[in-house]
Simulated scan of single mutants.
Amino acid sequence: MQAIKETNYKFPNQTNFYKGKVRDVYTIQNKYLVMVVSDRISAFDVVLPEPIPYKGQVLNQIAAISLEATKDIVPNWVINVPDPSVTIGRICEPFKVEMVIRGYLAGHAAREYALGKREVCGVKLPEGLKENDKLPEPIITPTTKASVGHDEDISREDILARGIVSEEDYLQLEKYTKALNQRGTEIAAERDLILVDTKYEFGKADGKIYLIDEIHTPDSSRYFYKNGYEELQQKGEPQKQLSKEFVRKWLIENGFQGKDGQQVPLMDKEKVKSISDRYIELFEKITGKSFVKENHENIYNRVENNVLTALKML
């Protein structure tokens, strides 16, 4: 079975190409982006050697469904989804912050809290919380959008004081973030899930703010299963998560956390298939739809032909 490990197309009027950890992004006429979501998988800031069949399709289609379900809240960058693994959209100038919103004390915020900190990104947190507890209300904990290295926490005050985003735009980003999170929470609840935390990225084109990148995917969001949440909290046990945490856990169990000198464990065909199956399960749980496996024979030709057809219509 073929998987999209890397692409190297030369599209008509192509003006740039960027290869990210997971996405191959082609710029057309300096106006449009063709985003090919590959089947590469990364963890601990390392791209693992084996691609995962259907992973790109899963992420791209969850994002497409989620962006369609929220376009009444904020316009988004998408023009067309010509292939299960490809999105074509307008180029926007990205804001140099990621809008992270948290409804629960989990992940990075929980680790900070455990160190005794009662403030994250300038937002005060109450005493007496346990990991994975629901917060009194969702909090926005932005991070800088680093071009190199890791993103870093930043407060609203610092964003405005440093002129990273104008006050008018930032207030609008906050409104959009809260409304998107509310919609995502409602959709998750319909699937018996809890949207724990998520991130949104925004950009500007022709003076208008657009939602960009993927949203509400297992790579950009953390979900808990609603069923059993209260019982696990009362017992102080870890929550059952719907995210790619299972991949990180397998790597840790096999002695890899992305540190110097550590070797990525061998992913045999059985392990690759099990990860692929798990991503398909994530798709079906998050969207409530059955996953349709696209034909993976001649996958590179399929992607190229679908993109070429779509570009003619721009």
Rank of each mutant, 00 (worst) to 15 (best):
E168F: 08
K124Y: 06
T287P: 12
I286V: 14
A188R: 03
S274V: 02
T217I: 10
I88Q: 12
T27Q: 10
E168V: 12
D260G: 08
K269E: 14
L105C: 03
Q241Y: 07
G89C: 08
C121F: 10
E127T: 07
T177A: 00
K249D: 13
E174I: 10
P84T: 11
L171D: 15
P218R: 12
V307W: 06
I62C: 07
V37C: 11
V81A: 14
G56H: 03
R222L: 11
Y32V: 13
Y225C: 03
I299H: 09
I65G: 05
T198Q: 03
L314N: 10
R278G: 00
I52H: 04
H108C: 04
T27P: 01
D169M: 03
R302V: 02
D39F: 06
V264R: 04
G122H: 09
L282T: 00
L67S: 02
L160V: 11
N227D: 14
V36D: 07
K240G: 01
G236K: 08
V36R: 03
Y210S: 01
V120T: 09
E270Q: 11
L251W: 06
L232A: 13
L125M: 12
D158E: 14
P53L: 11
Y54E: 08
N30L: 05
Y229H: 02
L171Y: 05
L67C: 03
F44H: 00
Q57V: 13
M313L: 15
P51W: 04
M99H: 01
Q241R: 15
R118Y: 13
K178H: 02
P265A: 07
E98I: 00
I73C: 00
P218H: 12
Y18V: 13
P136V: 09
K145P: 01
R90E: 15
L115P: 04
T144K: 05
I101H: 00
V97F: 01
E245D: 14
D219Q: 05
L125S: 06
T177D: 01
L180N: 05
K289E: 13
N8E: 11
